[in-house]
Write a protein that binds this DNA or RNA. Structure first.
Lengths: 218, 218, 218, 218
DNA sequence: TATGAATGAGGCTTCATTCAT
DNA sequence: AATGAATGAAGCCTCATTCAT
């Protein structure tokens, strides 16, 4: 789905509270797409305007600076991740009652892989610019990573009580889950390396790998 | 070690064939450091000149365009990786006679982790710009990835013959090794996420994870 | 008194014939204040709108162009100077029967000093822009300087007839009076230089200085 | 004399230490002339470039910002005022041995009037922008007003000792001298009002006016 | 009447690159 | 080889003004 349509769905969904005219959507969608293609710095506002079909001045009517275009993205990605109106929102998984932590883990990892695959453009832009904009790091942390971390840790604690996980900091487990998701994203979408063998996909091995480290043999 | 000194060692090493004046080294070192910090596009040649301590025009005597500065990096990184004059060159490992593939695998992964840690700046620059410059992708492939891949595959084939590895394409195994190395690099150096538990570091789990997939229970 | 209140008084006074809504007053008052602070050219209409508390478009319903805001000021300053509803209007002085021209002169100078002090913002704006807008010069001449000049000359003629003033062109005398008033304004309000000595203020010396030139020893 | 030639003389004079290429002189001269005509804010750098006959980028090679063009002026005006290589430099007067303070005063006032008349463009620019740029006020004070004030006060003190001046703060007298010079400048060059009568020019009346206030009847 | 979205022209400034010295 | 003056193209952004609502 085009970024533009993604934003329209986001705006029109009952679960989100967004007020954007079609023109505003055109602008940010065009921006994201060119940012993904050429990088933020190498993208000119005039190019964005042309692609969005608006005057260059119009961009600055809605976003005070070029940077604001970049910094607006985390908010929308956060909505895409958590809003129940979207497939691959993570919220549902955390509400399902899993018997075994291993199954939850598998679903989370697979869900996140699907999520990054389907929102690859937004995520690409954000993590390409991640090293250069401290404020962006803060925004992403606050609007995406922190809320996700919180939920994960709560779940892990639940399965610790059930005796399925050894007593190591929930932090470390959550970190590993993140790491594997991002590792997946980078090798596939940035480096574009693909691999698969003997019928199973990496996820199975990854789950096994993690459970080796944290599982309690019952 | 500073990038500048790294390049001086590279030039002065007997194992490499590089002809650079101190001024040329100053220029490319300064360029790499600022590229790493702000990104290629956001770096100006005048800033490089200032940091390198040369006149603005001097840069263009040695590199016809700004892009040439970026495109020169893969060659040097390749030397750092393969030249025997450097610690953490990968060549030595492939020449050592390992009994078990698992031990080789562990050493390779640890060697590459050290390598990326010690050459973090050069690698950062290259992979930050990787998505935006097709020619750069080609250069990296040809000067770094392909030769490495070739060596790895040769080794895997050897251990296949020894019956330590199941019969799946050597390609897939090599890819997985890359993927884990780069996954490590990105989560640690770009996302700056660190994790570790129960005394062992990730490498052990990662080796186990890979061996689960490819090892033959003897 | 704030410029805004000044304009409200101007509108509500019986002696003037002005039809302005509160919004219009807000606009021109805001404009004048920012013009005085940053100069006409450096002031943006959007800034005026914000300070006036109106929409950006509203300004242009009342004033076709930004220049019109500037060109509207002389009319109001003229009213403030001549309308009998205001303290420091000059009209009253010219109607009072002075025995000696020297006393009239002293009162005129003092009155004008008070006037510029109290309407410093409007005058500042006008004379800061004076050199750059020929039409403004015309407007000020017609609505302020010319009527004032006319009155002064009439008075001077009267005292010439009384034999208190030597027979030089009344023009020259009037010019000198202007010059001294504006000199006062600029040194005090633009250059912000203050001086005073031996208890008397400048006015006394100034009157003496003028009378030296034009007075007839009786 | 054109501003450009003025700057060339300034550069080539032995008494000043200025290093400017012809192009730099073209730039600042063009800037000053247009600033005087339209005001600093209303002048565009592209207009300056065109008038100076250089590329727009060249301006910024020599002056980092447009403001720097304005802020460079005080230094040159100061040189014009004090450097002995120029007619109407004030330094010479302060070195001449006058019998009577009154004669010194007359010469100073006449010298300054000539000076402002001949450097009218530079002074116009500076004092037009005076109200809008606090840093400019500082610069002018430090490079022009303060040194001048210092010299004047020293001289006044000398004539106080000689018993020609009453004992009031030398400050006040100096202020009055400034005020009259600037009053003259503004009424003549900004307001463009001229007056003269009975053969004498204003200076005579002004000197008399000042001496009335400060002179001691011997 | 009042608004604020929309905009093209133009403003200041940066930049990679050229070239005379 | 080394420099830095010179520059036009382009970049980001501001602005006065228009217009549909």
């Amino acid at each position: 789905m085009s970024v533009k349509n993604l934003f329209k769905e986001l705006r029109d969904s009952d679960d989100t509270d967004i007020n954007m005219t079609d023109k505003q959507i055109s602008i940010i969608s065009a921006a994201i797409e060119i940012f993904a293609e050429k990088g933020y710095s190498a993208t000119s506002t005039s190019e964005i305007a042309k692609k969005a079909g608006v005057g260059e001045g119009t961009i600055f009517h809605h976003y005070k600076t070029k940077k604001d275009l970049l910094f607006a993205i985390p908010k929308y990605l956060s909505m895409l991740s958590f809003s129940k109106a979207f497939p691959n929102n993570i919220s549902e998984i955390f509400e399902k009652p899993y018997e075994r932590f291993e199954d939850l883990l598998r679903d989370v990892i697979q869900n996140r892989k699907k999520f990054v695959t389907e929102n690859v453009i937004l995520i690409k832009v954000l993590f390409q610019e991640f090293p250069f904009h401290p404020e962006l790091r803060t925004k992403i942390s606050q609007s995406i990573l922190a809320p996700a971390m919180e939920k994960i840790i709560k779940v892990i604690d639940k399965y610790k009580e059930k005796g399925q996980i050894i007593d190591i900091p929930s932090n470390s487990i959550a970190n590993l889950m993140f790491s594997s998701t991002f590792g997946y994203f980078f090798t596939h979408n940035i480096l574009m390396i693909e691999f698969k063998w003997d019928g199973k996909d990496e996820t199975d091995y990854l789950v096994q790998y993690i459970m080796n480290g944290i599982g309690k043999s019952s």
